[in-house]
Computed example of a mutant assay.
Amino acid sequence: MTSSPATPGETSPYHVDVPLRWSDMDAYGHVNNVQFVRLLEDARVIGFEDWFGRDRTMLNEGVLVARHEIEYLAPLDFRRAPVVVAMWATKISGASFDLAYEVRDTADPSSRLYARAETTLVAYDFTTASPRRLRPDERAVLDKQYAEPVAFRWRTKGGR
């Protein structure tokens, strides 16, 4: 898996290549909907290491998934080439933040878009078994990855 972080002031989001596994397929040869969520998790794990560093990653200190929303746009057939997951922060609160994703063939925004998604994550303290506030250094990292919310179809049609 390879990744490419965005540099400050750059408009393109962070990208990570995520390989597909043979077991990701359903009976129709498409990547199963549950496996899409695993692809996003793989991208998030790699991204957090790149964003927060290997010595002090949010994954080691505690973060929980509070919500997932995913919009499937095209069937993703199994292939040996990895998919590219773009990832960026869209909302940063006191103890939580939202990450947006786009799953594509390549980092080129004109390549085929298979899914777009959003995950709400909560910073968590394992020792107290409770949510914790984001530290200023964590907020600064997320601020560098900040961009517009996911362009879900329901948002563009005036839903919710």
Rank of each mutant, 00 (worst) to 15 (best):
A66F: 07
R139G: 12
W51I: 06
D26Y: 09
A81G: 02
S23L: 04
R56T: 12
V45D: 00
D55M: 02
G53S: 11
L64V: 15
V122S: 10
T156N: 14
R112S: 09
P19G: 10
P5R: 06
D26N: 12
F48H: 00
V18A: 11
L73G: 05
R67V: 01
R38Q: 15
R112F: 06
D24I: 11
R135S: 14
Y114N: 05
D125V: 01
Y124T: 04
D24A: 13
G62W: 05
G62L: 04
H15G: 07
F48L: 03
R56L: 11
E138L: 10
R104V: 01
F78E: 03
G159I: 07
V37T: 12
V141L: 08
K144A: 15
V45Y: 04
Y72G: 07
V34Y: 04
D105A: 07
L64I: 11
E10K: 09
L59P: 00
G47F: 15
L121M: 13
D137Q: 12
R54L: 14
A117Q: 09
S110K: 15
R38P: 01
A27M: 10
W51C: 09
M1C: 12
V37R: 10
D125F: 03
G94V: 02
A117E: 08
R132F: 08
A123G: 06
P19Q: 06
A43R: 01
V34I: 12
G158N: 05
L20G: 03
A123P: 05
F52P: 10
A86S: 15
D77V: 10
R160P: 00
D17T: 10
L64A: 07
F152D: 02
D50P: 01
R56C: 02
I92D: 02
E61Q: 05
R116H: 00
T57V: 01
S3T: 14
P136I: 01
L20T: 06
G9F: 12
F152I: 02
T90P: 03
V83G: 03
V16R: 07
M87S: 14
R139P: 06
I46D: 13
R80H: 09
R116D: 04
P13G: 10
Q145D: 12
L76G: 03
R155W: 10
G158A: 08
A147E: 07
Y114T: 00
A117D: 05
G94L: 07
V63C: 13
Q35Y: 08
G9W: 06
T11H: 12
P8Y: 11
S110R: 13
T120N: 08
E71C: 10
A86K: 06
R133T: 05
M25R: 11
D55N: 14
Y146H: 14
D98P: 07
A81H: 13
A66Y: 12
M1R: 12
N60I: 07
L113C: 11
R44N: 07
Y114W: 01
H30K: 03
D105E: 15
R112W: 03
P5S: 04
R80L: 07
D137E: 14
